[in-house]
Nucleic acid binder design. Structure first.
Lengths: 167, 167
DNA sequence: AATAATACGTCAGCTTTGTTGACATTCCAA
DNA sequence: TTGGAATGTCAACAAAGCTGACGTATTATT
């Protein structure tokens, strides 16, 4: 287990079912806030959250392949393909046949794509920044620690891999 | 703005775009982990995440009305009705006409409903507990602080109202 | 007493985003 | 040269959200 034993009294009060339930509900409501601003922007367009996610990760890792994106997003290629096709048709995403492996398509944002991505992530970052500022650096460190511990091993790998790129 | 000025150097490093992006991605991956276990359980049944949410909040506030639940979940009554109808038909949720106001329907879980709810929330709590334990009480406090700061004002009201009940 | 507002249910139709399954193409590598 | 990987695409479907319209109790207001 871990420390345990002697510190049975108050030290573990943060692990009671009540505390866990609060955390679960906080996660639920916070996630809605987390996506609210981009959702509002996207509602006017023909795009949704799935398009936002694609734009985000292409922006973040330019030249990434379809398979990479598939693994990160955790959806089927048919589902992702629908999103990518729309973005390519509308000129937000550019497709480039791989040099080494010509089966692969490397994905890039166009100028227009970068513009929309920036608009969306600005909104999302603004909220995040406000929350971070209100909570302070130590709270933020704790926030990140808990989130990372909450991921699946699979997802933590993907997350870590992303972090390494620019981390 | 706020404090600013003299402490321009390292004190605000946690507010850089890079740090915010990491937080955004951590939130994305963590939320997938957060829902993964209940999702796996529900996949075998004819239910989804929407049913889980309804069960959770009815369990948490027994006797809540449809309108209450609507406000908490933030969906339309048509959408919620589809979910509730299934749960009532399958004998997981019980409907009770209001005493004071006979227009209202008060919602309760049946024994079967409680069983499923427990199964789902046990799975979710287990992951939460493991994450909390790994991160420690101070990290958890920070986690909660940031989440609460991230909610919409609307949602924070709902969240606070819930907390008061049993909190 | 009449009227308005509220709470709830339901029908119909639409959208987004996910899913399977099947199949073709292209290309790398053994 | 052949098997398998990476990609794209078609079709059909499901979950879960949405709008709009309408009906029925019940309560509140005038």
């Amino acid at each position: 287990m871990e420390a345990g034993g002697r510190e049975s009294g108050n030290a573990l009060l943060f692990l009671t079912d009540e505390q866990l339930r609060k955390g679960i509900e906080a996660m639920f409501f916070a996630y809605r806030g987390f996506t609210a601003d981009p959702d509002r922007i996207l509602a006017d367009m023909a795009y949704g959250r799935a398009h936002h996610r694609a734009l985000h990760f292409i922006h973040r890792s330019p030249g990434t392949t379809v398979n990479n994106l598939l693994a990160i997003l955790g959806v089927t290629k048919q589902s992702l393909n629908r999103v990518l096709r729309a973005l390519v048709e509308d000129g937000l995403v550019r497709n480039e046949v791989g040099k080494r492996d010509k089966r692969e398509r490397h994905l890039f944002l166009t100028g227009t794509g970068e513009d929309l991505e920036r608009q969306l992530s600005d909104a999302q970052r603004d909220r995040m920044r406000t929350a971070y500022r209100a909570a302070g650096p130590e709270a933020v460190a704790g926030f990140r620690q808990v989130l990372e511990a909450m991921m699946d091993n699979e997802m933590r790998k993907r997350y870590d891999a992303l972090i390494e790129l620019k981390g």
